[in-house]
């Protein structure tokens, strides 16, 4: 199923990406090719097959409940573009 420019707008919005108007056609075309490629799977009979979510046939290991981390805030905030009063700063959010 080919993707329309509206589809591109919708999924770009979901992914917080912006596609310039002049690029939309190209994205629609290439994503349509990819979707066409993956749609071949529809032809495979998978009745009764359990989906393989993970290649490792193991179970989740559990960690003991102990505090092992120390305060590294000042070090870690060096990577942030905008901090103040020890907080990470973003544009005003209106709930």
């Amino acid at each position: 199923m080919p993707l329309s420019k509206q589809d591109i707008d919708h999924i770009a919005r979901l992914a917080r990406l912006e596609v310039a108007p002049q690029e939309k056609g190209d994205y629609a075309e290439k994503l349509s090719q990819i979707i066409e490629l993956v749609e071949q799977l529809g032809a495979i009979d998978t009745t009764g097959v359990v989906p393989m979510a993970h290649p490792l046939d193991m179970v989740q290991r559990l960690r003991p409940d102990s505090v092992t981390e120390t305060d590294q805030r000042d070090y870690l905030q060096q990577n942030a573009r905008d901090t103040e009063n020890a907080l990470y700063i973003v544009p005003k959010v209106i709930e």
């Binding site: 020890a86 907080l87 990470y88 700063i89 544009p91 005003k92 709930e95």
Partner: peptide, 15 residues
């Protein structure tokens, strides 16, 4: 937590 009241024009994030 998003803290909206500390700054007038920005939101602060405490994780």
């Amino acid at each position: 937590k998003s803290l909206h009241d500390i700054f007038s024009d920005r939101t602060g994030i405490d994780l």
